[in-house]
């Protein structure tokens, strides 16, 4: 349409320039968006693989046919989990549950955890990803699930020190993760040594947790 009739004598060069600018803007914009998409796509893949590298204890909550992946907080995953949502891991279906985090809740300042977030629902998860939006409520959330065999994953500084099991840290070209064996033992989960090998940092009892 731009390049249609000879009669439309908008100068050629300006047409081209216009297109270029448009593309650049789109590119930049999508770059940002796609970069974020890409990061969460990778994180989703990693979480999927964490499930494969971790053993839950025999007795657990509810359904024996599912593995529940809970995401609490401002969910930036979007459809990152789409490639794996139908897959079977350890003979179980994957079920995704999104919980509103305390930060999104009106009762965020309440003393009762139940009012801050869906504690029961969260406790029913196998894996719990705490979004960075809930950075202030990490302790509360972790406290609520501390007796439960839940793989807690997050992407905030100090997560391991707070008692989380796996924490994503920013890497050079792709995310990298660190693992807390102390927390893992506390939750009763068995983490494969092969996973530990590729973690950027592993915290165990002998070493000092670094911040």
């Amino acid at each position: 349409m731009f390049f249609g009739a000879h009669e439309n004598r908008i100068p050629r060069i300006s047409q081209v320039l216009f297109c270029l600018v448009l593309c650049a803007v789109c590119a930049v914009a999508s770059d940002d968006v796609s970069a974020e998409n890409r990061e969460y796509k990778i994180k989703a893949a990693f979480i999927y693989n964490f499930i494969k590298a971790v053993e839950w204890p025999q007795e657990h909550i509810e359904d024996a046919n599912t593995i529940v992946i809970g995401i609490i907080g401002h969910n930036l995953f979007g459809d990152a989990f789409k490639p794996v949502e139908d897959k079977i891991v350890k003979d179980r279906h994957l079920v995704f549950r999104v919980f509103k985090g305390p930060s999104e809740n009106d009762n965020k300042d309440s003393d009762k955890q139940e009012e801050m977030f869906d504690v029961t629902g969260v406790r029913a998860c196998h894996v719990l990803f705490i979004c960075s939006s809930e950075v202030e409520y990490i302790d509360d959330i972790l406290d609520a699930v501390k007796e439960y065999p839940i793989l807690t994953v997050s992407e905030v500084d100090g997560f391991l020190a707070a008692g989380g099991v796996i924490n994503f840290v920013p890497g050079a070209d792709k995310p990298v993760f660190e693992v807390s064996l102390i927390a893992g033992r506390k939750t009763g989960l068995a983490i494969s040594s092969k996973l530990l090998r590729i973690a950027s940092r592993v915290i165990d009892e002998e070493s000092e947790p670094e911040k």
Binding site: F46, N49, K52, A53, S192, K194, L195, R197, I198
Partner: peptide
């Protein structure tokens, strides 16, 4: 068997 998890995470070093 040894490198399956590293492979899953596309970890070349490991």
């Amino acid at each position: 068997e040894n490198c399956n998890i590293a492979m899953a995470f596309r970890n070349k070093d490991d």
